[in-house]
């Protein structure tokens, strides 16, 4: 079970920051501002951020940005990054051609 989170708790207003247009998810080109907005829209878990913004959903599957996003959620919510669950790791951990994958069971 996940940790108790009352999604109505006050995390303050979304204040624009000078580096909001900096890219965080390199694959899907999702900016810091977009992720911060998602957090203020109520997306408080890594998975919700991923599904809501596509950050971490690109070709590399969040291998670079996950750690950064975790830190961002923690900062906006005022909690420790330790308390934030990671995204589910998914098969395949590297991109694989459909043809190549299919040969596994012929």
């Amino acid at each position: 079970m996940a940790e108790y989170l009352d999604r109505s708790s006050d995390i303050g207003k979304l204040v624009a920051m000078p580096d909001d247009d900096m890219i965080i998810c390199r694959c899907e080109e999702i900016t810091k501002g977009e992720i911060r907005k998602a957090i203020h829209d109520g997306m408080w878990t890594m998975t919700e951020i991923k599904r809501y913004t596509r950050a971490g959903m690109g070709l590399c599957q969040g291998q670079t940005c996950s750690r950064i996003i975790k830190g961002m959620i923690a900062k906006e919510l005022g909690v420790l990054p330790l308390s934030i669950d990671d995204n589910t790791a998914r098969v395949p951990v590297r991109p694989v051609e459909v043809r190549v994958y299919g040969k596994g069971i012929n």
Binding site: V91, P92, E97, Y101, N106
Partner: peptide
């Protein structure tokens, strides 16, 4: 084996996808 099975099923209806890559399941 399900991902492999899904890949084969997709290609049998859409050969177009054979060289495209599965990025997650």
């Amino acid at each position: 084996i399900t991902t492999a099975s899904n890949c084969n099923q997709l290609v049998s209806y859409f050969p177009y996808f054979k060289d495209a890559k599965v990025i997650r399941s």
